[in-house]
Amino acid sequence: MPTRESSFAAVWAILRKECRSEWRTRYGLNSALLFAITTLTAVSFAVGRLGDRTDVLAALLWIVILFAALASLSHTFVREVEGHTQTLLRLAAGPTPIAVGKLLFNLLFLGVLEVVTVPLFMILMGGPPPHWGTFLGVLALGSVALAVAATLVGAVIAQTRGRNALFAGVSLPLLLPLLAAVVSATRAQWTGNPVTFELRLLAAYTFALLAASLLLYDHLWED
């Protein structure tokens, strides 16, 4: 049986391997940043600064983050299958450390993406100053929820033949409630309304999805 120490070591090994591979290949980060920057620039040229249109601002921010990140986040497992490295991975670590390692990488990826995207969004779109504590809390919880959902979707679709078609089918019901909650919370913090309900919803969603994922990974990641 794997000990807690060996599981931590496996998670660390996978996180470090993912970071090193991404750094060497720039497989996901370059295209994610390109998407985010070009989208924000194009919208800025087209409609100018959105000012106090907090409904549009909140939706635009999360659409940019979601679409910039999703293709890369959900492909963390697909890359292993397409590169035929899943045998190596399965011989080196158990399903749960693999999934947790990839989830942590996805979180880190989102963090790097948001460090560039959010300030650029603020500058180009010109929204009202956010309530920083609440805003960062929504951003953090939304990112965790997005990473958990994308990692699970990635594990589900990786072993299937029609993975591109399945990607949309599995993603839609998982991402819609998440997107609705984060957009609503982001808008609420700008307008000064309470965000407690949305944060609770996001926390419950993340917890439920994480628990389901940890139960499913043993079965998803085998022949």
Binding site: A13, K17, R20, L88
Partner: peptide, 12 residues
């Protein structure tokens, strides 16, 4: 070496 070091770390 990095490929093997990944496996060695994962094996603990």
């Amino acid at each position: 070496a990095e490929n093997l070091r990944f496996a060695a770390t994962a094996h603990g």
